[in-house]
Design a binder for these strands. Sequence first.
DNA 1: CGACATATTGAGATCCATCAACCAATGTGG
DNA 2: CCACATTGGTTGATGGATCTCAATATGTCG
Lengths: 190, 190
Amino acid sequence: MTEEIQLKKIDELIQNLDSDTLSALENIRELKRYKKGEFLLHQDKLCRYSFWIEQGILRKFYWNDTKEITTELIFEHDIAVSFGSYVLQKPSKEFIQAVTDVTVYQTEAQSFQMLKAKFPKLVELDLMMTEYYAMWLEKRLFEFRTRNATERYLQLLRQQPHIILEVPLTYIASYLGISLETLSRIRSKI
Amino acid sequence: MTEEIQLKKIDELIQNLDSDTLSALENIRELKRYKKGEFLLHQDKLCRYSFWIEQGILRKFYWNDTKEITTELIFEHDIAVSFGSYVLQKPSKEFIQAVTDVTVYQTEAQSFQMLKAKFPKLVELDLMMTEYYAMWLEKRLFEFRTRNATERYLQLLRQQPHIILEVPLTYIASYLGISLETLSRIRSKI
DNA sequence: CGACATATTGAGATCCATCAACCAATGTGG
DNA sequence: CCACATTGGTTGATGGATCTCAATATGTCG
């Protein structure tokens, strides 16, 4: 899979960071715990932090009129940010919420920005992570445009079965862009 | 608009590039013309170039079973690449095709990659452009998930009226994710 | 246990795709 | 320069995927 190539490159780059850079990175991050249901970011607030998940599950969602739309379900060893808000430091459309109790390393956008000026390797790291996110977004769009509800569910089941085991169906339906009822019917037909 | 902030940052960064960097960039790019209908990139080929459009219109699309899906319509002073293929140098799912006669500056991915090693500012430029693309993708996803066919058309009409004037309805329908017939009916109801 | 969140099932409505016929404009070979 | 093919768009009829609303069931936690 294309994504794995990118992950490998990111991993290699991190492995090869000199210890100065690494310890600088560690100095600006902070270990935090959030309880299930807690919000790490509210709509209309600035996304001042990135959240590296050590343990647990997060989700990103926004409100559309009467209903929530889940944009992403995020697991251990991945990063949660409200991208547009984080990059531009403008109010976020999205919430970030703890689906389970979570442990995260949170890093202030500003601190990371300053560190990049000092350690150019971090700009490359940032670029690779952004590339990774863009490819993930392209894949999401591709799936929405080419697969129907059943196919999207089956694909999720195949590719990320842990999601289905660990996340309430309400969120999964919303993540897949279908109603809870439709998801229930798809599942009942195996 | 959020996107404009990013465009401004990109522009500023380019304005502030030293002349060495700028002329290096110019040395690795090549002015090319393509006729309406010609392919700048074929499916299953590597996307070896980025295409900066000097004049004309390009589109990106892929095949899904029996029909084309247009992913992007690209105008003057913007860049066309098959992102995943360009970044990972793996075969492209997408075609890039000239909608009109076009003039582009094309730059080899490899040359740009090498230049980045020499001119760190270019890594920042690459990052900003990638951020811009990721935000564009987020916006596309948002629109597909929150707006119906009519709303998507009206939004396009409002935000990028030139697209509707210059691109065949067949492509616009496909870009909006609706059938040509539906688009025709939407338009007839003003 | 009761209360509240989560999931299932049914019936009806809606949006939009598909298929098919048709039309208008443009281009091309003889 | 005409006849015909091709491209791009319109219009009508029909069906399917999925949503919404409502009732019911199941699960979970204090």
